[in-house]
Design a protein around this nucleic acid. Sequence first.
DNA 1: AAAGGTTCCGAAAACCTTTTCGGATCGCCG
DNA 2: CGGCGATCCGAAAAGGTTTTCGGAACCTTT
Lengths: 342, 342
Amino acid sequence: MAPSPAPRGARTATLTDVARLAGVSVATASKALNGRNHVSAATRERVAEAAAQLSFSPNSLARGLLAGRTGTVGLLTSDLVGRFSLPILMGAEDAFGAGEMSVFLCDARGDAIRERHHVQALLSRRVDGLIVVGSSTDPRPPLAAAVDVPVVYAYAPSENPEDLSIVPDNVGAGRMAVEHLIACGRTRIAHISGDRGFSAARDRAAGALAALADAGLAPVGEVAYGTWQEGWGRAAAAMLLDREPDFDAVLCGSDQVARGVLDTLRERGRRVPEDVAVMGFDDWRVMTTGARPQLTSVDMNLEELGRTAARALFEAIGAEHGRGVRTVQCRVVVRGSTAPGT
Amino acid sequence: MAPSPAPRGARTATLTDVARLAGVSVATASKALNGRNHVSAATRERVAEAAAQLSFSPNSLARGLLAGRTGTVGLLTSDLVGRFSLPILMGAEDAFGAGEMSVFLCDARGDAIRERHHVQALLSRRVDGLIVVGSSTDPRPPLAAAVDVPVVYAYAPSENPEDLSIVPDNVGAGRMAVEHLIACGRTRIAHISGDRGFSAARDRAAGALAALADAGLAPVGEVAYGTWQEGWGRAAAAMLLDREPDFDAVLCGSDQVARGVLDTLRERGRRVPEDVAVMGFDDWRVMTTGARPQLTSVDMNLEELGRTAARALFEAIGAEHGRGVRTVQCRVVVRGSTAPGT
DNA sequence: AAAGGTTCCGAAAACCTTTTCGGATCGCCG
DNA sequence: CGGCGATCCGAAAAGGTTTTCGGAACCTTT
């Protein structure tokens, strides 16, 4: 049996219908359904029954029109296809869903025109706030249009320091990774990074070098920048083996690079983790758990970042708006490539 | 310079303001801005100027309240974290964005309670339609609540054949894959599938076997079901080499399985594609392009599936609602693992 | 100059809910 | 029995837009 075959055209019940059925005025019906005072228990009951019978659902548009707040926010991503938007999105959706907020999703596809268009549409829908999710951690220009609702930038900070931005702590992540390797007893550590054009690569490298210096260690070779791909990992590992064969750990710019490094190390007869420990970045499960051995990685806590952005926006709605850049801590996820037996 | 520092509290301009500034009535202002007749060119110009000056943006809530249509749709996913929702989402968002529709995103996280709650919220916001995106191609129960707007199920079809569902053609995909292998001159084809519990695995196997039979060929060994992971690919390939070493192609249930198979084949001295051709499913770029050699795969065209679902919903809004299951074609993406030199 | 037609504009209703405030009813006390 | 307080209910306005329809002004034609 289909669940009450959609009565198309049968205008959905309004509060007036409920009131009529319950034999009260709309005002009373409203108060009864919203738990306001000055309604007798009996009346409240009658109204509730009537509402249930008509499967009444209050029209949020009318409510929003009156209240001046809609209970909606816009989530503007610049690149949905990218791997990093999604977890942030999930975290934000999660945090808002709990707070009775609904989320408009817009993907600008990296196009400024489309972005402006989407912002206009969202403002026209009277969203209470906006989260702008970038596709890399490099700063991005602030929204072009004049926006009269709070805006929170997530992942990619705004170039305007007056805006509120939530970003992962890549420097801390690099530091954390090296500290883990040192804790595993490694001292001859090389860093095969990703694309030098990304601040994520540079920040992680900076954190890693700082942690090495703090421990009185020098890196093995230069930081090797390339791409974020497996192929670069394979090539860079080969070069490292040729030039600086005396290393006992490799910190990689991404999980994909680490996969490539693992492949080359295995082919060249180095055992992981016995001879060489290997770490990745991003903790992309499909990459880390499919690897042999499973790959230790640094999780950027993107879902938490999304939740944080959502909470920040939520606070900014109605209250005064925060400013500046806030970071979210990363965390090391230990697997077999650095610690045997895990 | 910050772009006009958000004038909080400075009530956004309304049509009344525009009308006053232009020295006309709200009715005229409305008609002027919406390109209606019965407005002189001069007046239209004056109103447009006033609107621009106040950076007027019409209140969609009021408009929706009046029109009975909001220009919004709900996108209800059951599992955002899964790899398949996202491209569908993108396709849908793309198709709707072009049509001036805005998309509410909700993730039910596979929880029926949460799903019902989200549906209620969406109906309360008076969405014009609903797309329900599943996390696997297995049929799912139809929405529990009585919904009086069109619903389209994407990826996972509804169990109710009266509903409209858009799904990938997995049988056709399996057939297509085998046909490609045969076209590459292979005749001794094995199939290492994924998790038997998924209809996607069974459908692809059925299509593959049908194509083999059509070509007068028999598969090498049984269809091997396991998981969707790399580890299963490695293990299954090893077993295949032990039991039925005489094969010249392996069709894998997923790109991850194919990665595992590639690893084992390389380690056991079989060259790809010279000795053995290997194919995956899903065309997950990070898996296929990182592999050595790059992996031929079958793309399910999920983005197109999302667009198709969006278009179907769009048509159903206002018109009569379609029924039944429609499929979207898959396509083979050829890379080095089946055809050398590509 | 009057009649008729054309062109443009404005008043008002409609959409649905919430809130305010005045009015009505009832019970209780003096 | 009158007055008072408490309790509950309803009329009406507000929110911003679109649409309908009546009215005003102007031009053309006889």
